[in-house]
């Protein structure tokens, strides 16, 4: 699926194009053999489709509550049971999944945009620009970001936007480092020198030749970042700093479920399964992609 699209970004024909084509198809072939990764991919696609279509698919409206019903275990009317306000858990889970996935994807996207831009510029120009930019990254790395995010969430009115930004602002650092290393590698390749000689502008070179080649490691990192972000959102929810009701997220559902786990275990089990399954899947997919794109086992990338 990805290989065609990505290959088409590759404007130079000849050897490099061939090389790119074969790299991606090779990777895809490898990935297809990795059952866990394919399972992960399937789950992610499934979850995403459900999340997108939730307003059409959910068995009950999001706000529907039935106080007299209260919390009941799974039944024919409520497949996953109801919560203490008599709200259908499946419905809550579907809407919560939308939020969790959105936070995961959007915050990662923020990190992605900043990280790629920063890393590419630093890596491409090198020299003093690179030194200065990466020194800033080093400095930011040493900040206790968790503490700042908590402070931010306590201090300011909570909003989705703030949540994305806050988490994205932490995650872009690693992204920038990865991209920079990759860009420096590619810059030394011959076809870039060739492009420079043919008189392409720097912008064209960066966006048309370098960026596409950075995508491999970035995808790997993204699949490993999203679960981290989703966990962090859950963690903020535990502190009461997550999304606003009546919206909820898997993190909110789990931290609510923990409180009543002895009386109403289903309120913990199903959100727990949903979150863990998604995190598992993303991790498996990330591992699979890493193996597929790089024949040797790399050791970095789990940090932080």
């Amino acid at each position: 699926m990805n290989n065609k699209m990505l290959a088409s970004h590759h404007p130079l024909d000849g050897q490099d194009g061939e090389y790119g084509q074969s790299l991606w198809s090779l990777a895809w072939a490898k990935l297809r053999k990795n059952k866990l990764a394919m399972f992960g991919l399937g789950v992610i696609v499934f979850m995403t489709i459900i999340a997108v279509l939730t307003p059409l698919l959910s068995p009950y409206p999001q706000e529907a509550q039935d106080l007299t019903l209260g919390a009941v275990p799974p039944s024919a009317a409520h497949w996953l049971g109801t919560d203490t306000l008599g709200r259908d858990l499946l419905t809550r889970l579907m809407y919560g999944g939308r939020v969790s996935l959105l936070v995961g994807f959007a915050a990662t996207a923020v990190a992605l945009v900043i990280g790629i831009l920063w890393g590419t510029i630093a890596g491409y120009f090198g020299g003093i620009i690179d030194a200065a930019m990466m020194r800033i990254v080093d400095i930011l790395y040493a900040l206790p970001f968790m503490i700042f995010v908590i402070l931010l969430m306590v201090v300011f009115e909570r909003s989705f936007l703030l949540l994305f930004l806050a988490i994205g602002l932490i995650e872009w650092l690693t992204m920038a480092r990865i991209v920079r290393a990759q860009v420096m590698n590619i810059r030394r390749q011959e076809y870039i020198s060739a492009a420079v000689v043919t008189g392409l502008s720097r912008r064209q070179i960066i966006f048309r030749h370098i960026m596409p080649n950075v995508i491999g490691p970035v995808i790997v990192y993204v699949t490993l970042t999203i679960p981290g972000v989703m966990l962090f959102e859950a963690f903020l929810s535990f502190l009461g700093l997550g999304v606003q009701p009546p919206a909820s997220s898997w993190g909110v559902l789990i931290s609510d479920g923990v409180e009543t786990m002895e009386e109403y275990p289903w309120l913990l089990i199903f959100p727990g399964i949903a979150l863990s399954l998604t995190l598992f899947s993303l991790n498996f997919l990330g591992d699979g992609l890493r193996d597929a794109l790089d024949p040797r086992t790399t050791v970095d990338g789990d940090g932080g």
Binding site: A234, G251, S255, L279, F280, N283
Partner: peptide, 13 residues
């Protein structure tokens, strides 16, 4: 992998 995917506030209780 389970350890990585379980939030602390779930694991603790």
């Amino acid at each position: 992998m389970t350890g990585i995917c379980l939030p602390t506030f779930l694991l603790g209780p």
